[in-house]
Amino acid sequence: MTTVDQAGSWPAGARAAAGDAVTDVATDVVGDAAPAVPGEGATPGTRGRRPSRLLGIRTEVPASWRIGFGVIGVLAILALWFWSSQGDSALIATPSESWSAFTQMVGDGTFQTDLWASAQRVLIGYGISMVIGIVLGIATGTFAAVDAFFEPMIGFLRYIPAPALIPLFLLLLGIDESPKIWLIVVGTAFYNVLMTADVARAVPREMINASYTLGAGRWRILRRVILPHSVPGIIDVARINLAAAWSMLVVAELLAAQSGLGYQLIRSQRFRAIDAMFAILIAFGVIGLLSDVLLRQVRNRVAPWSRP
């Protein structure tokens, strides 16, 4: 509403022009009073900032735009690769060279062998790490005493870079499979524990209290309430830290291995097989992407209730 106060604060000319509007303004909304402002006459203006279609803060863009941007992003990186591989640079393989190196590795079976060797280490090592993460994480997030026990310990241990343990592991465990597997365990378990603890802490207090008032004891609440509530969160933790497991694997394989994708990478370097190196690097990305999609599917299948 146009009030006397506002009218009083208008410039003198505006007040005069508004004079006839004031009589009917009481029944009008503010916007209608706009033509009363001197100058332009009867064209209504606009109020407020128009929201941005492209870069609105936390606003959705149309699905077609999403797909479009994704495609542009992938094409951009491919274009960058293609462009930088042109010319005489022998250090960057072209996409087509990489592809033929890849088909050749698949053809003679070395790729499958190395992939399986690496995947086996990741599955075993990361499996152990997830078991540790789930058991200790749920306990840490549920019981303050367990939290107090592990917090300073893990806070210290997780700052020791896991690859720094490789020399020690090689001495202690030899050069076969176990140092690689334990490097994956050590390199990911702390994060799995800490992140799973946060997942367990996210169980609403009221849900636990409601369970108590329904007669449930601690063990029952742990198994029937905290654990099922944490399942989707645990799968997400597994999904996020899986990348770190592959990192640890490659570090181990680069240093001491006779098989695996990381070993093949260092071997290709020795023989200056740049195209094979690129093929393996891209294979890592594709493996990661596929396992990410797979774990998302598992999450939605196992816990449809948590789907947004």
Binding site: E206, M207, A210, T213, V231, S306
Partner: peptide, 13 residues
Amino acid sequence: RGMVFQAYSLFPW
């Protein structure tokens, strides 16, 4: 002593 809370107490799964 059955109890009902304001919200968030049902088991969503």
